[in-house]
């Protein structure tokens, strides 16, 4: 499904700030894999996701989705295969446009926009149905501007937008980190349901070790641009937080230092 082979990325090469953000990363995912990613600050978690999404080009290696090598494909073309939810709730939606306009754009993800109407009448009922399932009271606010919604509502909407056209790969970059615990839990519940229903192949970065353990069928831990722990299936199910910390210390040769890391 997703094959990442020998991918490296160096920021500011040749300068004093040179940073090897990704150091020869290899990751293979099979269809339906749900991988959670944890790691210390600057471990390369977001760089990995942004490399897959095409936000910047990689310096070495290959990224293949299905049987398509997307290593050199520009960001907007990769959108056909990839759905994304960002950490900042402001980034996933157009604040000044109506809920239905945002959804209509997402309904056409990966298609070249043309001269037909941006929203068709029959789509509105469909949108309402999907919003009703979110259970956030958005189904009656199709023509509200997204800027009026709360962070949690915007993130739920972004999640819906990323998945309403089933992506081959779903990338979640700490998508609940900016939300209060209760809202985060709600958005995580929605995430789990949507992923399960469509069997989406997913990578989810999280700063919450508990979430990393209870979500997904596979867990990877990153440190200094490398994947240092990779556990799946029953082996992952058996892990508890102290085991994770021990695994990390053994693999990285130092204690985990993520100042936002939540152990609960």
């Amino acid at each position: 499904m997703l094959r990442i082979e020998n991918v490296s990325k160096i920021f500011f090469p040749g300068s004093v700030n040179e940073k090897k953000a990704l150091d020869n990363i290899n990751l293979h995912m099979t269809p339906g894999d749900f991988v959670t990613v944890i790691g210390s600050n600057g471990a390369g978690k977001s760089t990995l996701l942004n490399s897959i999404a095409g936000v910047f080009s990689i310096d070495a290696g290959h990224i293949v989705i299905g049987d398509k090598d997307i290593s050199n494909m520009p960001e907007h073309k990769r959108a056909k295969y990839i759905g994304r939810v960002f950490q900042d709730p402001m980034l996933g939606t157009a604040a000044g446009m109506m809920i239905e306009e945002n959804l209509a754009i997402a309904a056409r993800r990966g298609k070249v926009p043309g001269f037909s109407w941006a929203i068709k009448e029959e789509e509105r009922e469909h949108f309402k149905g999907m919003l009703r399932e979110l259970d956030l009271g958005l189904e009656d606010r199709l023509t509200s501007r997204v800027g009026l919604l709360s962070g949690g509502q915007r993130q739920a909407l972004t999640l819906l937008m990323a998945t309403m056209q089933q992506p081959q790969l779903l990338l979640l970059d700490e998508h609940t980190a900016a939300l209060d615990p209760k809202t985060a839990e709600k958005v995580l519940g929605l995430t789990r349901n949507i992923i399960a229903r469509h069997h989406l192949t997913t990578i989810m970065i999280t700063h919450n070790m508990h979430d990393a353990l209870r979500f997904g069928n596979r867990l990877i831990m990153m440190n200094a641009g490398r994947i240092v722990v990779d556990v799946a299936g029953i082996e992952k199910d058996r892990l508890a937080i102290p085991d994770l910390l021990a695994l990390f210390e053994k693999a990285a040769g130092m204690a985990m230092d993520n100042d936002r890391l939540l152990l609960g």
């Binding site: 959108a79 994304r84 997402a106 056409r108 993800r109 990966g110 937008m161």
Partner: peptide, 8 residues
């Protein structure tokens, strides 16, 4: 950023 992520 949003509209690029939507393929435009």
């Amino acid at each position: 950023q949003m509209i690029r992520a939507q393929g435009v």
